[in-house]
Simulated assay, not measured.
Amino acid sequence: MLVVIKGNDWEGKVGDELRTVFGEHQVGLPQPETILSVTQVDPTGFASFMRNSKSILVLEKGAKESFSIKENKYSKPQVVMFITAKDEAGFIKVIQQKSKEIIKTFQALDIKKMQRHFAKNKLDDSKYKTTKNLGLSLTIPKIFKTVDDTGEFLWLRQHLKSGIARGDGSNNILIYALPLEDEATVAENITKMRDAIGEKYIPGSDEGMYMITEQAYAPFTFDAEIDGKKAYETRGKWEVKNDFMAGPFINYTIVDKKNNRLIVFEGFTYAPSVNKRDFIFELEAIGKSLKIK
């Protein structure tokens, strides 16, 4: 996110509030990483290529407090948000009132951009027995390779042997379905369900080792919506039981009432010693592309 604000305001109380709000850490990651990456520019320097940024927040002095959003003002795709106020207190008030909307809007823009990028070179998901049997489609880039496809459980993996991963890491996708038994208890049973799947399908290097939800770190679950259906988004950390492998995961558990089932998409990352926000973000974009046919 590019913040257009005068330097003295950025160094003062308004800048402190912006850094507090938009410097919030993303939950479920092993290392502290902010939800958004923020860059500041003075209005005098906001010209030419700077205006091509896709997510822009402009703070400017005005007679009254206001907040507005304009799409594709300087380039496409782009969202530009304007906060107007007459003084520090006014700016801080609007920032606090609109912070959640600002974050949600900019994140949605990033997701759509990533999905368009993946769509240019996507896998043919109809070739997988599991997605075919479950009646699902997703936008998954071709860099993912099949680990397991039973017809009931799909595991795809992207190796991260170069670039920012700097090691033999991987991004992983899991897709499966479970019976919908009691809708009221879905959220509280997500950890139990994913641990059962880990024991059944995701073994470690030796007997008795398999993927589980990290026991020392309680995951966070939020209400979500996938393909117009009620869903739960869970972020947390996984580990291999009786081993030292671990990393972050994002899980979407979708309530498919029509077919009396839960559709589960999970992405998890193994990338030791490097930041993992961007890897989980890519998995989030794939998960949010899921459609039930």
Results as ranks from 00 to 15, higher is better:
Lys6His: 12
Gly15Leu: 09
Gly15Glu: 10
Asp16Cys: 00
Arg19Phe: 06
Gln26Phe: 12
Ile35Pro: 13
Val38Gln: 04
Val41Leu: 02
Val41Asp: 01
Thr44Leu: 10
Gly45Phe: 12
Gly45Asp: 15
Phe46Trp: 08
Phe49Cys: 09
Arg51Ala: 10
Ser55Asp: 10
Ala63Met: 15
Ala63Thr: 15
Glu65Ala: 12
Asn72Met: 08
Lys73Arg: 14
Lys73Thr: 15
Tyr74Glu: 02
Tyr74Lys: 02
Ser75Glu: 11
Lys76Thr: 12
Gln78Val: 05
Ala85Glu: 05
Lys86Ala: 14
Asp87Val: 03
Ala89Ile: 10
Phe91Cys: 01
Gln96Phe: 03
Gln97Leu: 04
Ser99Gln: 14
Ile102Thr: 01
Ala108Phe: 01
Lys113Ala: 11
Gln115Tyr: 07
Gln115Gly: 08
Asp124Gly: 02
Lys129Glu: 14
Thr130Pro: 11
Asn133Val: 11
Leu136Asn: 07
Leu138Gln: 10
Ile140Gly: 05
Lys142Arg: 12
Leu154Asp: 03
Gly169Gln: 04
Ser170Ile: 01
Ile173Leu: 01
Thr185Arg: 05
Ala187Lys: 09
Lys192Trp: 02
Met193Ile: 09
Met193Val: 07
Arg194Gly: 04
Ile197Gln: 14
Gly198Phe: 05
Gly198Asp: 01
Ile202Asp: 06
Gly204Arg: 05
Ser205Cys: 07
Ile212Leu: 04
Tyr217Leu: 10
Phe222Asp: 02
Ala224Thr: 00
Thr234Met: 14
Lys237Ile: 12
Lys237Ala: 06
Asp243Ala: 15
Met245Leu: 15
Tyr252Pro: 06
Lys258Ile: 05
Asn260Val: 08
Glu266Ser: 02
Val274Gly: 07
Lys276Phe: 09
Gly287Asp: 03
Gly287Lys: 01
Ile292Val: 10
